[in-house]
Design a protein around this nucleic acid. Structure first.
Length: 270
DNA sequence: AATAACACCTGTGTGC
DNA sequence: TGCACACAGGTGTTAT
């Protein structure tokens, strides 16, 4: 489900309901997620939530006694509900709050994670090797040029590589490359600085626009108020196999790159 | 070191 | 209707 915009929309939605609340209970119905749900999360019971931040697609719920690191995987979602709401299938974790609400985690495919960690998070194995956040100034054309130097792999795969830049998943990699006029198959190391400037600009624009629109709802993603993400209406190539390119009308091509569906216009993208 | 393939898991849609 | 199969928003691990 979620790429950076959907995770950020989730964070913005749940954060006001969490900050300042104390955690009354953490109930784990299904501990088998990507990794076993940390039993140490119980350390957080009785603690007050001080912040909800994001690094890449990881959400970090902080208290003075440590934090929960939450990842939504492919199908995870977080909602705020009244504490007595009946749990349904795939509702694996509940964090009950002192304001009578519950933060509920649903994840049918169970690729997500709920981990406990002490603070600070410096040196955490899952976080320390991550590339820059795409919406910060650390992610710029000069950085990207250096990071891609000598790389033979396809630019789309490079954009989806967390060591190079975080948060760009399959939807937004396809979209940003389309808006940049760059073929997804182009070897990453042979793209000019000029074109990388455009690419960086488009990645930032696409991600920021998607956040503004409440993310992209392909299937079941909703904002915390239950509304879908409206960026789906602005997709140009993702999921548009055989439909006309919005720019030139040529049929959108579909190929596989790194086992993932890839959509592009072979006339507009070179 | 870099790249590519595989693994994890459930639900849904398609074609026979 | 049933079945087999492909595919889905991610990413750490393993193999090449």
């Amino acid at each position: 489900m979620p790429e950076l915009p959907e995770v950020e929309v989730t964070r913005l939605g749940v954060s006001p309901h969490l900050i300042g609340q104390s955690i009354e209970a953490i109930e784990v119905r299904q501990p088998q997620l990507r990794w076993p749900v940390s039993e140490q999360l119980q350390t957080l019971v009785g603690q007050v939530i001080t912040s909800v931040s994001r690094r890449a697609k990881y959400l970090i719920i902080e208290t003075a006694a440590g934090c929960a690191i939450v990842h939504l995987g492919m199908s995870g979602s977080l909602r705020i509900l009244p504490k007595d709401s009946p749990a349904e299938k795939h509702d694996h974790v509940d964090m009950t709050l002192s304001n009578g609400q519950v933060l509920r985690y649903r994840d049918p495919r169970r690729f997500g994670a709920w981990l406990y960690n002490e603070l600070p998070l410096e040196g955490h194995a899952l976080l320390e090797k991550l590339g820059p956040e795409p919406l910060t100034d650390d992610f710029n054309a000069h950085y990207l040029k250096a990071a891609l130097k000598g790389r033979s792999k396809a630019i789309k795969l490079a954009l989806m590589d967390n060591h190079i830049v975080v948060g760009v998943g399959n939807i937004y990699a396809n979209e940003a490359l389309f808006h940049s006029g760059i073929a997804p198959t182009r070897p990453a190391g042979q793209i000019s600085i000029k074109r990388l400037e455009t690419l960086v600009e488009q990645i930032k624009r696409v991600l920021a626009d998607a956040i503004k629109q409440g993310g992209t709802s392909l299937k079941d993603f909703t904002q915390s108020d239950g509304k879908p993400g409206y960026f789906v209406q602005q997709l140009s190539v993702y999921g548009k196999s055989q439909q006309p390119c919005p720019n030139c009308g040529r049929e959108i091509a579909t190929i596989k790159l790194g086992q993932r569906a890839t959509f592009y216009c072979s006339r507009c993208q070179r």
